[in-house]
C-alpha cells in the first residue's frame, strides 16, 4: 500500500512539473530556495576553509581591534569578513550561512511533521464526518487554536530554563497540525459526497481503499500547499522566540543574531549586523511561500474544466 502511495505522489509530481516550470512565480521561488540551500550547505565548508575563528556560535576573530564607532569588536564588511563582525568579533557571514541551515532544518521538519499529522487527522475526520471521532478531533482542534502558542512557548522556556531545539520542533508540530487538519477535513467532506465514491462503494471498495486511492490523491496537492505555508510560519516563530531570548542558545539562528544585536545595543550602531538575518528570514520564507502559491494555482480543484 505504501508503494501505491509513493507511486501516486510520483504521478502527481510528473503530471505537474511541466506546468510548474512555466509558472513564473514558482520558478522565482525555486531559484531563491536553491540559493539558500546552497548557503546552508556551504556553511560548514566555509568554516573549514577559513578556520575555526569563523565558527558561527563560538568563533571569534582574535586579531581584531576595538572599533571606536561601536565600542566593541563589531566591524563593517571588509575583505576578511564579507558581512562584517558582531560585537564579540564573530564573522557574520558564517552566522548567516548557519542560520540558513537552521532555517531549513527547523522549517522543513516542522512542516513535514505538522502536514503528515494534519492530513491524516483531516482525512479521518472528514471521511467519518458527523460521527464521534470527527467531533472529538474537531473539538481538540477548536481548543488548540484558542491557545496562543508564542506565549505558551515563552512560559515553557520560563519554567524549563531554555528551549531546546527538539522541544521547540515538537511543540510547533503539535500546534501547527490544526490548520492543515481543518483544511483537509473540509476538502474531504466535499469529496466524499461525489458520485464516484458511491460508485466505488457499490463495487465493494473498503473504506481504507476509498480513503487512500480515491480521496487522498485529491487532498495531497492541498497538503503540499499547506506544508509550504507552514515552513514560513515555523521559521518566523523560531526567529521570534530566539529574538526574545528564549531560543536554543547553542544554535546561532537568524533570530538569535537579532537578539544578540539588540542585547548588545548595537541595533543603531551596526546596520550590517542587523540586516542580513532579517533579510534572510524574509527571503527564505518568501521562497517557500512563492512555491506554495504556484502549487495553489496549478492544482487547486477550482480549475475544474467545464463540460
Amino acid at each position: 500500500m505504501i508503494k501505491d502511495y509513493i507511486n501516486e505522489i510520483k504521478e502527481i509530481f510528473n503530471e505537474n512539473w511541466p506546468r510548474f516550470r512555466s509558472n513564473k512565480i514558482g520558478m522565482i521561488g525555486l531559484v531563491i530556495l536553491i540559493i539558500f540551500l546552497f548557503f546552508a550547505m556551504f556553511g560548514p565548508i566555509y568554516v573549514k576553509i577559513m578556520g575555526p575563528e569563523y565558527l558561527p556560535v563560538n568563533g571569534m576573530d582574535l586579531s581584531l581591534e576595538i572599533n571606536p564607532n561601536t565600542n566593541s569588536y563589531a566591524w563593517p564588511p571588509s575583505l576578511k569578513h564579507i558581512m562584517g563582525t558582531d560585537a564579540k568579533g564573530s564573522d557574520i557571514f558564517s552566522q548567516f550561512l548557519n542560520g540558513s541551515k537552521l532555517g531549513f532544518i527547523i522549517g522543513i521538519s516542522i512542516a513535514i511533521g505538522a502536514t503528515v499529522l494534519g492530513t491524516t487527522f483531516g482525512l479521518i475526520s472528514g471521511y467519518w464526518g458527523g460521527t464521534l471521532i470527527d467531533s472529538c478531533i474537531m473539538r481538540i482542534v477548536d481548543i488548540m487554536i484558542c491557545i496562543p502558542f508564542l506565549p505558551l512557548l515563552i512560559i515553557i522556556s520560563a519554567v524549563s530554563g531554555s528551549m531546546n531545539l527538539i522541544t521547540f520542533i515538537i511543540i510547533m508540530i503539535m500546534f501547527s497540525w490544526t490548520g492543515v487538519c481543518r483544511v483537509v477535513r473540509s476538502q474531504t467532506l466535499s469529496l466524499r459526497t461525489r458520485l464516484y465514491i458511491d460508485s466505488a462503494k457499490a463495487t465493494g471498495a473498503s473504506n481504507c481503499r476509498i480513503l487512500f486511492k480515491h480521496i487522498a490523491p485529491n487532498v495531497i496537492p492541498l497538503s503540499f500547499y499547506e506544508m509550504t505555508m507552514i515552513v514560513g510560519a515555523a521559521i518566523l516563530t523560531e526567529a521570534g522566540l530566539s529574538f526574545l531570548g528564549f531560543g536554543d542558545p547553542t544554535q546561532m539562528s537568524w533570530g538569535m543574531m537579532i537578539n544578540y544585536c539588540r542585547a548588545q545595543s548595537h541595533v543603531f550602531k551596526s546596520l550590517w549586523w542587523i540586516l542580513p538575518s532579517g533579510l534572510g528570514i524574509t527571503f527564505l520564507s518568501m521562497a517557500f511561500y512563492l512555491i506554495g502559491r504556484s502549487f495553489d494555482e496549478i492544482v487547486n480543484p477550482r480549475l475544474r474544466k467545464r463540460k
Binding site: 533570530g255 537579532i258 511561500y289
Partner: peptide, 8 residues
C-alpha cells in the same frame, strides 16, 4: 508578509 515582525 514574510518579514519577521520584530525585525520590521
Amino acid at each position: 508578509y514574510n518579514m519577521p515582525l520584530f525585525w520590521l
